[in-house]
Every structure is written in C-alpha cells, then in structure tokens.
C-alpha cells in the first residue's frame, strides 16, 4: 500500500524530469534549425526575461491583459446585475448577447484596428469587449436565479438596496460570476497575444513575432515559454482567488443556515 503510494509520487515527479531530459537530448542531437538545443533556449530566456525586457515588453502585455480583463469584469457584473434584475430588458438583450458571445473573438480584431487603431487602449478595449460577455451572462443568470425567499427575506428585514446587492445578491451569484470569469481569462490571454502579433510595437506577442521574422529561434522559443508560464501562473492566481472568495461564500451560507 505505502509502496504503491511512493510509486505514484515518484511517477508524478519523474515524468516531467524525464520528458525535459528527452527534449534536451533530442534538440541537441537532431540539430534541427527550428528546435534549437534546450540550453540555448534557457540562455535566451535568462537574457531576455531576467529582467532585461520585463519593463519594455512584459509589463505592457500584462497591463493590457489586466486592464482589459478588469474592465470586462466591472462592466460585466454591473450590466449583469441590471439585466438580472429587469426581466423585460433581459428578454430584449439576451439574443444580442448570445450572438456577440458566439462571434469568434479574433474576428473582431480587424474591426478594432479600424475603429480604434493599434495603441494600447484599442487592445484593452478589444480584450474587454470579448471578455465581458461570459461574465455578463454568468452574473445575469446568477442574479436572476436567486431564490425569491432569499431576496424577500432581505426585503422583510428592510435591508437597503445597496446592502442587499453587496451582501446578498452578489455573494449568491458569485459562483456563476466566477464561472464566467474562468471562461474569459483564456480569451483575454489569446487576444493579448494576437493583438500584439498583428499590430504593436512592444509586448511579448510582438517580441515573439519579431524573433521569428529575424530567425532568432532561441529568442522566439524563450518568448513562447514565457507565454506558457504566464498562462499557467495567471490560471493559478485565478484559482487561488476563486478558492478564497467562494470558500468565504460557502462559509457564510453555512452560518446563515
């Protein structure tokens, strides 16, 4: 039994190590132009991202990403509350929202270039525009689905509307709001990268494409790996926040029961 457990842990640790080793050996022996040796990529990574280009490329990318995502979160929750509460407005808006959500986000890229240009605000607007729909729909469903007795209880105790919103309705809808945000986060990352690839003068996406055009393959790979790490970390961060917020929510609900 315990021998088996050790085997499982060993498997969990060893496979990534073995895989990395295999990649290192393969890239060194195959001498393919497109897949430079692993240590060269490592050197390029240290050279570029520790921390020479952090201010010039990483921070602008992260700024666009977070600004776009947070704008979408604020707008999505605000509009979601409105639509969740007002049934006739929800009926009018639902088909439009469903349609906008179904539009593959990259299709909107040329539109933002025409309407807003290629500066940071345009990218932020694009990210926000795409990310807002899942959050809006999640909030709307969450608010509209609140148990009537729950809301009436609040009303019967004469709780003011604002307090009811922040203490009752938003917490009750928070699982769906977070589900919407979870859908939006990868979209934000995708749009950040491709908007920087198509029209930009800085950012990680721009750097990666430039490296590819000048055939600086180790640089290109270092950028790809950085994007991978960023995606992983952002996901992790999001899960941590979600875990904390929803744990509080669960605890609060159990107490009121």
């Amino acid at each position: 039994m315990s021998g088996r457990r050790i085997g499982l842990v060993a498997a969990e640790i060893l496979t990534p190590v073995l895989l990395l080793a295999a990649i290192a050996i393969w890239t060194n022996t195959a001498s393919s132009f497109y897949f430079p040796p692993l240590q060269e990529i490592g050197e390029a990574f240290a050279e570029n991202w520790l921390f020479a280009r952090v201010a010039s490329d990483v921070l602008p990318s992260l700024f666009r990403l977070l600004a776009g995502f947070l704008t979408a979160a604020v707008l999505g929750v605000a509009l979601g509350v409105l639509l969740g509460r007002v049934a006739w407005l929800r009926r009018q808006a639902s088909p439009v929202i469903e349609f906008l959500r179904a539009v593959p986000p990259p299709a909107l890229l040329p539109f933002t270039i025409i309407a807003l240009g290629v500066e940071s605000p345009a990218k932020i607007a694009l990210i926000a525009f795409v990310c807002v729909w899942p959050i809006l729909l999640g909030t709307m469903d969450g608010i509209a689905g609140i148990d009537l007795t729950q809301r009436d209880t609040g009303r019967s105790f004469q709780i003011r509307a604002m307090r009811s919103l922040f203490r009752v309705e938003l917490p009750a809808a928070s699982p769906q709001i977070f589900a919407g945000m979870r859908t939006s986060l990868p979209l934000a990352i995708i749009l950040m990268v491709i908007s920087e690839m198509v029209g930009a003068t800085d950012g990680i996406g721009y750097f990666v494409v430039q490296s590819q055009r000048t055939f600086a393959l180790p640089d290109m790979w270092s950028g790809i790996i950085l994007l991978g790490i960023l995606g992983y970390l952002l996901n992790l961060l999001f899960s941590l926040i979600e875990g904390r917020v929803l744990a509080w929510h669960r605890g609060a609900r159990e107490q009121t029961r």
Binding site: L19, V193, M220
Partner: peptide
Amino acid sequence: EFVYRATRPIIEFLRPVPSVALIPL
C-alpha cells in the same frame, strides 16, 4: 491512477498555455 499521476504535472502545465503562443512556430 498511475498514468493519471504521471501525466498530471505535464497536462496541468500545458493546458493553460495559450495556443496562440505557437503561431510563430
């Protein structure tokens, strides 16, 4: 369970990697 544990770190790492990062490649 064994294969699950062995592949979990790799999948957990690769899954959130934005596939658009591979566009240059």
